[in-house]
Design a protein around this nucleic acid. Structure first.
Length: 527
RNA sequence: GCCCCCGUAGCUCAGUGGACAGAGCGGCUGCCUUCUAAGCAGCGGGUCGCAGGUUCGAAUCCUGCCGGGGGCACCA
């Protein structure tokens, strides 16, 4: 559905004759409701002074927009500031109200997207960092879906290999009352697993590890469920080793057929240096064991074969060295490396007593996501994790988080939603109606403009893989609503005014709820 | 040595070419017979790390430097 802003943009673009002008909301109200740099872009081409060009563009816009525009001003070096009429505002509210899917996008090329995230190995419970990955990946998936793409969420985990074996050894040692082996797992949960799994002291290590992995995966799934994150696919690494030919053998054959595989020193290598990597990578060790990379190669070939247009792989910043070789892999397979996108999540540092504490799953030093959820709840945790851009490091001071959780901006947004609900309840049978006459209050105009920005924010957040923009937007929308609430009484004023304000309330409530839903946060009716 | 991310208010952070740089938290001062005070209003607070460059215009783009974090395995 085209929005009033889309139409305005088209009008400006037509006037700008092929240049790509901006249409944005100026920071200052006296610069208009919208402004465009069209004249500044056009002036050099026409070899005319920008302000003269602006005057002419203004005339054209006045003609093409008629009574939808109140006035046009030329300002500064040649900006064109547009002031919309109240009729335009009313029309906009009416259209938002009628648009059941307000905010949804229709991209030129909708994609089938696979978002792989968290993918923490089942060698321990999910940590606070896992909570960041989960919030980001899930929210991104929700945003991409609203933006018009088809999305699948996927979790890949190692249920085989040396780390899992080490887990088994650690549990057995605990069951026997011994210390875990060198490089083993030392967390308290290892002791708990030793107690929970009957016969763990004498069990075969691989069998024990298998049982522990089942337990831990179930625990991770429980935590994610509680965190409102659901995956469509749980992909086990072991599946890559099964069958004949196994997906790994298939992948190696495929790469060999493309001529990028060679053997040296008893190992099987992929010549990733042909595609910009620093060095070639081992697929199969001289011992015959498949490397982590080797398994991942097969995994990504498998994803490609499942027909996705785009593979988003959310990884921690410590994996950044991994990106080059994965891109090289795609080239080696004859696929477009651009298909693979790897948003790098920066770290979550736990701060205690003003100092950064270490976070090592192996040493058992970490804050689990469950602990965080117990302390400050799902909504506050998700909002906290999503407020910051994924490429900035987060400091999480537990004491502060606990103390400030009541001050979390998420409650401000939810509160606005609850207030609207309460207004609408009080309004009873009065019907919302955008109406056609009467002057609007400035706070009403500001709120309408903010609402109109929602579809653009969704599109922007999707394109940039930036859920935090939605968090910022939700907060700003709640602020604009609160200012409206302060200045404009809704229920009990003159009927025509009341029905317009009710329309504005309904549109706002729905948009807040939708924005919060994109963040995986609830929108309560009362607080 | 090479590669990636960051450096904006006391703190945590938005702001990827536009007009006098924003929010939350914290500090100070006021405001509840009113549709929810989890709120509102006001005050205070900034050489946008530094130095050059591109541009009509730079927190934003380019180069160099400084500081913080991370990575450079036949580990995962």
């Amino acid at each position: 559905m085209t929005t009033p802003v889309d139409e305005l943009r088209s009008a400006v673009e037509r006037a700008a004759q092929g240049a790509s002008p901006t249409l944005e909301r100026p920071k200052k109200a006296h610069f208009g409701d919208f402004s465009t740099n069209a004249a500044l872009l056009l002036a050099p081409k026409l070899r005319q002074p920008p302000r003269e060009v602006a005057e002419r563009l203004g005339e054209q816009l006045r003609d093409s927009l008629g009574d939808r525009i109140a006035r046009v001003e030329v300002a500064g070096p040649g900006f064109l500031n547009l002031f919309m009429s109240d009729a335009w505002y009313r029309d906009a509210v009416g259209r938002i109200l009628r648009d059941e899917s307000f905010g949804a996008g229709r991209p030129e090329r909708p994609e089938r997207v696979n978002v792989e995230f968290v993918s923490a190995n089942p060698t321990g419970p999910l940590t606070a960092a896992g909570g960041r990955h989960a919030a980001y990946g899930d929210s991104l998936a929700r945003i991409l879906a609203l933006a018009g793409h088809t999305v699948e969420r996927e979790y890949y985990f190692n249920d085989a290999g040396s780390q899992v074996r080490k887990l088994g050894e650690s549990i057995r040692a605990r069951a026997r009352g011994e210390e875990p082996p060198e490089d083993g797992y030392e967390g308290d949960y290892v002791v708990e697993l030793a107690a929970r799994i009957a016969g763990s002291a004498d069990m075969d290590v691989d069998e024990l590890a298998r049982r522990a992995v089942d337990e831990l995966v179930a625990g991770i799934q429980g935590t994610l469920e509680r965190y409102r994150v659901r995956f469509d696919t749980w992909f086990r690494e072991a599946a890559l080793h099964e069958g004949d030919p196994s997906p790994i053998a298939h992948a190696v054959d495929e790469l060999r057929a493309h001529g990028h595989v060679y053997e040296s020193e008893g190992a099987v290598w992929l010549r990733t240096t042909s595609f910009g990597d620093d060095k070639d990578r081992v697929l199969v060790r001289s011992t015959g064991e498949v490397t982590y990379f080797g398994a991942d190669v097969a995994y990504h070939l498998n994803k490609l074969e499942r027909g996705f247009d785009r593979l988003v792989n959310v990884l921690g910043a410590d994996h950044h060295g991994y990106v080059g070789r994965m891109k090289a892999l795609f080239s080696a397979l004859g696929a477009d490396p651009e298909v693979l996108e790897v948003p790098m999540m920066q770290f979550v540092h736990i701060v205690e007593g003003g100092q950064r504490a270490s976070m090592s799953k192996r040493r058992g030093e970490f804050v689990t996501l469950d602990e965080l959820l117990d302390e400050i709840g799902v909504d506050a945790t998700r909002f906290f994790m999503l407020q910051r851009s994924h490429d900035t490091t987060i400091d999480l001071d537990l004491d502060l988080a606990r103390q400030e959780s009541a001050e979390n901006p998420v409650y401000y947004v939810q509160y606005a939603h609850a207030r609207i609900s309460s207004i609408l309840a009080k309004a009873g049978d009065s019907a919302p109606d955008a109406g056609s006459d009467g002057e609007l209050h400035p706070a009403e105009r500001v709120l309408v403009l903010k609402l109109l920005g929602f579809p653009g924010e969704v599109a922007e957040a999707a394109e940039r893989r930036a859920p935090h923009r939605i968090a910022s937007y939700a907060l700003e929308l709640a602020q604009d609503f609160t200012a409206f609430y302060r200045d404009c009484k809704v229920v009990g004023v003159e009927p025509a005014v009341e029905s317009f304000r009710l329309a504005l309330c309904v549109a706002t409530r729905r948009t807040i709820a939708r924005a919060l839903d994109l963040l995986g946060v609830e929108a309560p009716e009362t607080m």
